[in-house]
Design a binder for these strands. Structure first.
Lengths: 246, 246
DNA sequence: CGAGGCATTGACTTGGTTCAAGAGGCGTGG
DNA sequence: CCACGCCTCTTGAACCAAGTCAATGCCTCG
């Protein structure tokens, strides 16, 4: 995966094409995209854009994880978005970055120069339609996060984050739900704290508490396994699901 | 305003047409919208939809204020959106409401039956384009709110809310910024608390503190005047100039 | 006048932060 | 190979901002 051929990957072979902004495109539309696209790689820890920077491209994350965050003048920072493979970065029609974008792991992006992309969008409703859908999904996710930030306890926040990562990880490599969920945390304690609106000490304490009580097991600092997913879900404070039970 | 003719208002005479989802529509497109639209009024305090309800319309707020909120099983609730005149409610392509929608004041909505609206959207890029733009704006607003919920102190939260309402109010009745800003709070203390991720007691205390220190003045419980807007902005914790959201 | 909603204020508790010390890993270079 | 510095993470103790519980004030409306 680190050896991706940056010079050119054919859209037809793209691993995340079916979920990305281009998922609805017909062959001729893909050809047009193919012409204006180029790949870029960012190393783990590298900043992709600072708030206020001129951004003359938009992009789809091909692999890796990036974060969007905002900072108050005195340095308090809040992560406001997590960009995963197939997610879209940048806003058509806007020149400046409005968030700090940082590569958490190594990130490969499929970039489109902004102007040509905007032109293309005007003529190909399939792109705009898909982008609308993705934006609506992100809005839902942001609002779910608002509930977490505003009303959940530290323990619930941690459990929620673990549940989300576990679920995404499971769906990504669709193992026909094996009994034990396992995954690596893609975030440092500090990044988790910035995401959850906590301090890194509180994150550490709550992770330890969940481990002590057997809700999760840790191998090293980052590798988590969840013996009983329902148990974890109980700790999130969320509805047990669609509504029945309780 | 309370005497709006519910039977029919011509789109051409609509007070919020230039900002709403239909703002880009040509005359013929407006005619099509005109055919599937109808007005509805909700009283202050009335619930417009509960999470999980089947919703067979989408709508534009014509006047009044509605809120979107989410609730955990034990009753903790977080407001996740404020719908103001010209804002859009509902998600094309989705049958169910995903939030509780409540009228805070009397609300007049311009409704479109969902199916016909979806069909129309497919054929009129102007509507989809505008909806995308509005959704992106809402996403930005939601993310700004995440920063507030995750990282601001109670005092900063209150100051931020007051600043937002003040600014919106000023822009709405574009008084060429007169020296003293004045407005009515459209929310109860409890609603403010639900918006800010606080308890109503804390809201009350912080409002009192800001009044005691002369940052704001109160006439009654709800009428606020701001003698020095910059002073208020200092209390928000934000960058001294940034600040978007309506 | 009394009832019922909102709002304020006080006294006390607590969850989470802050400050501080130290543990465990990992790469570099002597 | 070990020593060293650099990270990230954990843990403890003291503190404080905001929550909880409870009493009271102030409207408006019947």
């Amino acid at each position: 995966m680190h050896e991706i051929e940056l010079s050119h990957v054919d859209c037809a072979d793209c691993p995340i094409r079916h979920r990305a902004v281009c998922s609805r495109c017909e062959t001729d539309e893909l050809e047009q995209l193919e012409e204006i696209k180029y790949y870029r790689t960012f190393e783990a820890g590298q900043t992709i854009a600072w708030t206020g920077d001129k951004l003359d491209f938009v992009a789809t994350i091909v692999s890796g994880i990036a974060t969007l965050s905002q900072t108050l003048e005195d340095g308090r920072t809040q992560m406001v978005g997590l960009l995963l493979p197939s997610d879209f970065m940048g806003r058509p029609g806007r020149e400046m970055a409005t968030y700090d974008v940082t590569a958490t792991t190594e990130v490969v992006m499929c970039c489109f120069r902004r102007r040509p992309f905007e032109d293309l969008m005007r003529n190909t409703p399939h792109i705009a339609q898909r982008l609308l859908e993705m934006t609506l999904d992100e809005l839902d996710a942001a609002r779910e996060w608002m509930l977490l930030l505003g009303r959940k306890t530290a323990r619930e926040k941690i459990a929620s984050l673990l549940a989300i990562i576990a679920r995404r990880d499971a769906s990504l490599r669709h193992t026909g739900n094996s009994d034990v969920l396992e995954f690596d945390l893609p975030l440092t304690r500090e990044a988790m704290a910035d995401y959850l609106g906590l301090t890194l000490e509180t994150v550490s304490r709550q992770v330890s508490a969940l481990r002590r009580e057997g809700v999760i097991e840790l191998a090293g600092k980052r590798h988590v396994s969840v013996p009983d997913f329902d148990r974890l879900m109980l700790e999130t404070g969320d509805d047990t699901d669609g509504g029945f039970l309780v």
